[in-house]
Measured scan of single mutants.
Amino acid sequence: KEEVSSHTSPETGIWVTLGSEVFDVTEFVDLHPGGPSKLMLAAGGPLEPFWALYAVHNQSHVRELLAQYKIGEL
């Protein structure tokens, strides 16, 4: 988790977690339908608090999209 928390910018890579999985979403930030700034709120940390607020994320196609960016496990 400490390593994930240091990845919060395009220069270091933008990493997020979901459960025990780690994702590098650097290439996706500008494609995020809610805008880059919304995704950047989660940079370096867990997606769960944000996904709890926005139910649109609880769809299979969203998880499939995220899976493409998986880089490891906590």
Score class of each variant (00 low, 15 high):
26 T>G: 07
8 T>C: 13
15 W>S: 07
64 E>V: 08
39 L>I: 15
37 S>C: 07
57 H>L: 01
59 Q>Y: 03
60 S>T: 14
39 L>M: 09
44 G>K: 00
68 Q>C: 11
10 P>L: 12
12 T>M: 13
51 W>Y: 06
4 V>Q: 08
23 F>I: 05
55 A>M: 06
37 S>M: 08
35 G>C: 02
7 H>Q: 03
35 G>D: 05
64 E>Y: 05
47 L>N: 00
65 L>V: 15
24 D>H: 08
44 G>Q: 07
40 M>A: 04
59 Q>N: 11
38 K>F: 11
48 E>K: 11
5 S>H: 14
3 E>T: 14
8 T>Q: 13
40 M>C: 15
32 H>M: 00
45 G>L: 09
17 T>F: 10
30 D>E: 12
59 Q>H: 09
10 P>S: 11
11 E>D: 13
65 L>E: 01
41 L>D: 11
74 L>N: 08
64 E>G: 10
27 E>L: 11
42 A>T: 04
50 F>P: 04
39 L>K: 00
62 V>E: 00
43 A>I: 05
31 L>K: 14
54 Y>D: 10
17 T>P: 02
60 S>I: 13
38 K>W: 08
24 D>F: 01
17 T>Y: 05
32 H>E: 06
35 G>F: 01
15 W>D: 04
58 N>D: 11
58 N>K: 13
25 V>C: 03
29 V>Y: 01
8 T>E: 11
51 W>P: 06
29 V>F: 02
48 E>I: 14
56 V>R: 05
13 G>M: 03
17 T>R: 00
1 K>D: 09
38 K>G: 03
71 I>R: 09
73 E>S: 12
2 E>R: 10
63 R>W: 08
55 A>D: 15
30 D>L: 08
54 Y>I: 02
31 L>R: 10
33 P>H: 02
68 Q>F: 07
53 L>C: 13
33 P>K: 00
13 G>N: 05
16 V>P: 01
7 H>V: 08
19 G>P: 04
41 L>W: 01
56 V>A: 07
32 H>V: 00
33 P>E: 02
66 L>G: 02
18 L>D: 10
6 S>G: 15
9 S>N: 13
56 V>S: 07
67 A>T: 13
6 S>C: 15
49 P>F: 09
2 E>V: 14
24 D>A: 11
51 W>N: 00
8 T>K: 15
63 R>A: 08
31 L>D: 06
17 T>E: 10
56 V>T: 08
61 H>I: 04
23 F>Y: 13
42 A>V: 05
8 T>S: 13
15 W>Q: 08
16 V>G: 08
26 T>E: 02
5 S>M: 15
23 F>R: 01
26 T>V: 02
50 F>S: 04
69 Y>F: 13
21 E>A: 13
63 R>T: 10
21 E>T: 12
38 K>S: 07
63 R>S: 07
58 N>M: 10
29 V>C: 08
61 H>N: 06
29 V>T: 10
67 A>Q: 14
71 I>D: 01
35 G>I: 07
68 Q>M: 12
29 V>P: 02
23 F>S: 03
28 F>M: 03
67 A>R: 13
72 G>E: 08
58 N>E: 11
72 G>R: 09
59 Q>K: 13
26 T>D: 00
53 L>R: 15
32 H>K: 00
64 E>R: 11
39 L>W: 03
34 G>M: 00
11 E>P: 06
45 G>F: 10
34 G>F: 01
14 I>P: 00
27 E>T: 11
62 V>W: 07
54 Y>P: 09
8 T>F: 15
61 H>L: 04
39 L>N: 00
54 Y>M: 01
17 T>A: 09
45 G>Y: 04
49 P>H: 11
48 E>Q: 02
40 M>K: 09
7 H>M: 10
13 G>R: 11
19 G>D: 08
74 L>C: 13
16 V>S: 03
44 G>C: 07
50 F>W: 15
24 D>I: 01
64 E>M: 09
36 P>T: 09
14 I>Q: 01
55 A>P: 15
18 L>K: 15
39 L>V: 11
57 H>W: 02
73 E>H: 11
31 L>E: 07
65 L>M: 11
42 A>R: 04
36 P>S: 09
47 L>P: 00
29 V>A: 07
41 L>E: 12
19 G>Y: 07
55 A>I: 01
11 E>N: 13
56 V>C: 12
48 E>Y: 03
27 E>W: 05
67 A>H: 12
31 L>M: 10
34 G>H: 05
44 G>N: 03
8 T>V: 15
30 D>P: 15
54 Y>G: 11
21 E>R: 09
29 V>W: 05
63 R>D: 08
73 E>K: 12
45 G>D: 03
13 G>V: 15
39 L>T: 00
22 V>A: 15
36 P>Y: 09
55 A>F: 08
27 E>M: 10
20 S>A: 12
15 W>V: 10
